[in-house]
Amino acid sequence: MSDIANAPMRRRIRVLNDFFRATFMGGKIVITAGVSGLPLDVKARALIEVQRFTDFNAGNDPHDEHDFGSFDLAGETFFWKIDYYDALCQFGSEDPADPEKTTRVLTLMLAQEC
């Protein structure tokens, strides 16, 4: 399928990802062990940074889905990533543009954990 034909699907995925990221509604949030070990105020500020993130560009968002970001906070570099699973979170979603078939999972991690 061409990029032009995929554009409406990418746009729908991007809207769903932006809503989920900004509200944390419509999916699951996972934090890694490194993030979990940080002080409570740093974890809270990091989650707020994820919700406020808007610095999408060709380097960090090549598919234009708004599914990845990074930022610096409290001397740490954080990454976050949205993945698409089926409704039971057992397999990848067959259609990430369909919220009835997809569970979005946002993982917040320290860059050093990658």
Score class of each variant (00 low, 15 high):
17 N>V: 00
17 N>D: 04
18 D>Q: 13
18 D>H: 08
18 D>N: 12
18 D>C: 11
18 D>M: 10
19 F>S: 09
20 F>W: 00
20 F>E: 00
21 R>T: 00
22 A>K: 12
23 T>R: 10
23 T>F: 09
23 T>W: 08
23 T>G: 08
24 F>T: 01
25 M>F: 11
26 G>Q: 07
26 G>Y: 07
26 G>T: 07
27 G>R: 01
27 G>K: 00
28 K>S: 05
28 K>R: 11
28 K>V: 09
29 I>H: 02
30 V>K: 08
30 V>P: 01
31 I>K: 02
31 I>L: 09
32 T>L: 05
32 T>G: 04
32 T>N: 06
33 A>Q: 14
35 V>S: 02
35 V>E: 01
35 V>A: 04
35 V>G: 00
35 V>Q: 05
36 S>I: 10
36 S>K: 15
36 S>A: 15
37 G>C: 05
37 G>I: 05
37 G>R: 07
37 G>N: 09
38 L>W: 06
38 L>C: 07
39 P>N: 15
39 P>D: 15
40 L>R: 15
42 V>M: 14
44 A>F: 09
45 R>H: 09
46 A>G: 08
46 A>L: 10
47 L>C: 07
47 L>F: 05
48 I>Y: 11
48 I>E: 13
48 I>V: 15
49 E>P: 06
49 E>D: 12
49 E>F: 12
50 V>L: 05
50 V>Y: 02
50 V>E: 02
50 V>T: 03
51 Q>L: 07
53 F>W: 07
54 T>Y: 04
55 D>L: 10
56 F>N: 00
57 N>R: 14
58 A>V: 15
58 A>Q: 15
59 G>K: 14
59 G>E: 15
60 N>I: 08
60 N>G: 11
60 N>P: 09
60 N>Q: 12
60 N>E: 10
61 D>C: 07
62 P>W: 09
62 P>H: 10
62 P>F: 10
63 H>S: 12
63 H>Q: 13
63 H>P: 03
63 H>E: 12
65 E>H: 07
65 E>W: 03
66 H>I: 01
66 H>W: 03
67 D>R: 08
67 D>Q: 12
68 F>H: 11
68 F>A: 06
68 F>S: 04
68 F>T: 04
69 G>I: 01
69 G>H: 02
71 F>K: 06
71 F>R: 06
71 F>N: 04
71 F>H: 07
72 D>F: 08
